[in-house]
Design a protein around this nucleic acid. Structure first.
Lengths: 180, 180
DNA sequence: TTTCGTTGCCTAACGTCGTTATATATCAAC
DNA sequence: GTTGATATATAACGACGTTAGGCAACGAAA
């Protein structure tokens, strides 16, 4: 039934994702080419297509792993607004390219639908835990504010010396807005 | 001095920017290739390089034109937080690809430095007008919140039925946070 | 132990991209 | 009309994502 030693596909997937993350984090996403990925794995390009449909699929897999990591990072701190906010921003600044794949790049991942992956739900749930309300509006607003801070800050669009002030003001806003 | 009828370079630049915007808005940024741009202008690729250093330069020019338009859109409404917030979000949803070029794509534009273009300053000034404070922290937070809402919403990452609730909550937060 | 069928991988290629070198055509100046 | 400069077009280069086709390796059947 198995003519040739069938390789561990799960392991191969993981290797590709890890290599993609490393290359992206060091040289940027445009440097993550199928040829370079194959080279980093000591294989040839067609091998990549045995576990991924294409380059976009690789990026999506990296993004998904990022959402899992973000969820872990958020759950690791206390269920307190400021703690979770700092954990979120810490994650974004520690892995800028990963964060880029998760939010700023074209993605084939389903988000608001029923097929939304569990990793995504977990990450949002960790935020909602810290910003509870009836329908989740407050958590979505908190998330938006954090995402805006993270991206504009990383893009150099905000004054670096005001980073702490922005965080504190955002925190004050989000917590005082408890009663609607 | 002028051996051949020297073409209007400014006009050509404008034509390229307009064509790039149209193609991007209809078929997405990956469809904005130098070949297609040249075709839309009835010229050949090398002509584009007489007015733009490369593709990135074209994208940057489109982004810059977007900042100018954003500034105009913001200045067109009253200096009231809710008005300017709605104007901002209206702009982002009306020209999603343009907004993408301005914020979500790799850019060679200088932002926080002294060389920041006037179009950018104008857009931010219009926001600061509506969210005044001593050092501009509040305007930066407002901008971040709006940017987060715009991008996450456009990416389908937020519940569509809560859009109005998110806007109102964000507005309430930003306005009540007047005293620090 | 030999043969066969299946499966995994590599080489090579296709079409498209951004970008550039070379050549040709066009017009002002004399 | 000749000359010289310049604007444009043709053609190419290298790299990309992706795929087709051939070769080699291995388990099962004989």
């Amino acid at each position: 039934m198995s003519p040739k030693a069938s390789p561990d596909l799960a392991l191969r997937r993981l290797s590709v994702v890890l290599a993609a993350r490393e290359i992206a984090e060091s040289d940027g996403w445009p440097a993550v080419t199928m040829r370079r990925l194959a080279g980093a794995l000591g294989a040839t390009q067609p091998v990549l297509y045995t576990v991924f449909a294409g380059r976009q699929d690789v990026v999506d897999a990296v993004a998904l792993s990022g959402f899992e990591e973000l969820a872990v990072a958020l759950e690791a701190v206390e269920v307190v607004p400021m703690e979770r906010m700092q954990a979120y921003l810490r994650f974004a600044t520690a892995h800028p390219r990963l964060y880029e794949a998760m939010f700023s790049m074209p993605s084939g991942l389903p988000f608001a639908s029923d097929g939304t992956p569990g990793e995504l739900r977990r990450a949002f749930a960790a935020l909602r835990e810290a910003f509870p309300d009836k329908d989740g509006t407050r958590a979505e607003v908190a998330w938006s504010a954090l995402h805006g801070l993270a991206t504009l800050q990383h893009g150099g669009r905000l004054r670096a010396d005001l980073a702490q002030a922005r965080l504190e003001l955002t925190h004050a806003m989000l917590t005082r807005a408890e009663g609607l």
